[in-house]
């Protein structure tokens, strides 16, 4: 098992892949903002947003249903919105018995619940498309250009670099624990919950020390190559005309969704 499964980038040379990463970040955020701004039950606007998403999918050469596959990650969270089904006053649709309570689902509650789930489902798919078509270092470069503090983008860049190394280390630690998690007949195996938590804590402590010492070595390696506290990077991205045009068009279309959703 290898942490490479974490890589979300899908190499291709589509129109979307070639767009500047800033364009993709800005349009993604605008799209998500637009979803959040749309009023409940703005079905036409939701539908148009979905078509926009499908169109972006199609332009990315990843297959029309690509973002759909991973989009269900938000579904468990929908649980927190379940209560609006029965808590918003409106025309009763159906009443059912739940343990000892009679619950009434109202039309307004149902509309709100469905709207929340749709907003979330559309938004997450655009975010999935962003990282599937953009190398993560380019996303970080985009953040730099968009005035995210340098120290933060540097931390994020280091995090991304060492994420794979440390997660592999965790996998190996967990595997070594698993290999010794044995049982013999006649004894209750596994120890107490507190003992197991303590073992996990020891692993975390062990990992902390190794990471700390690794950062020393990394720092020395940086010094050896002339690091003086300033990370100079070349950020070769340059916006072309197609980037400007695409951004303008996409933002205009997203603005239209708002108009459609509010009339």
């Amino acid at each position: 098992m290898h942490s490479d499964v974490f890589d979300r980038y899908h190499a291709a040379n589509s129109f979307i892949h070639r767009l500047d990463s800033r364009v993709k970040v800005v349009v993604t955020v605008a799209f998500i903002l637009s979803n959040a701004l749309l009023p409940d039950a703005a079905w036409t606007a939701f539908g148009l947003s979905w078509l926009f998403l499908l169109f972006a999918n199609a332009l990315s050469d990843l297959g029309p249903g690509f973002t759909l596959q991973r989009s269900f990650i938000v579904l468990p969270f929908a649980l927190v919105a379940v209560t609006v089904l029965v808590s918003i006053p409106g025309e009763p649709l159906t009443t059912f018995r739940f343990i000892a309570w009679d619950l009434t689902i109202t039309d307004a509650g149902l509309l709100r619940f469905v709207s929340i789930v749709i907003r979330s489902w559309l938004s997450v798919q655009m975010a999935i498309l962003l990282v599937a078509t953009t190398r993560f270092p380019d996303v970080v470069h985009a953040l730099e250009h968009l005035r995210v503090p340098f120290i933060l983008t540097t931390i994020i860049a280091f995090l991304y670099r060492y994420l794979f190394v440390l997660v592999d280390e965790v996998f190996r630690l967990l595997r070594a624990r698993e290999a010794r998690s044995a049982a013999v007949a006649g004894f209750r195996a596994g120890g107490s919950v507190a003992w197991r938590a303590g073992v996990a804590g020891n692993m975390a402590g062990q990992l902390f020390l190794r990471s700390y010492e690794r950062s020393d070595r990394v720092y020395n390696a940086m010094l050896a190559r002339g690091y003086t506290g300033h990370l100079n990077t070349i950020n070769p991205h340059e916006l072309r005309r197609v980037d400007y045009v695409t951004t303008a068009l996409a933002l205009f279309v997203i603005l239209l969704f708002q108009v459609v959703g509010r009339v």
């Binding site: 595997r175 070594a176 624990r177 998690s181 044995a182 120890g191 020891n202």
Partner: peptide, 26 residues
Amino acid sequence: FQNPDDQLFSPTVFDDVAFGPLHMGL
């Protein structure tokens, strides 16, 4: 395992050598 740092995840030698038997509930 090949890398002893993976095998040894407890603070002291004793804790680590005792992990297996403790897990078995001896």
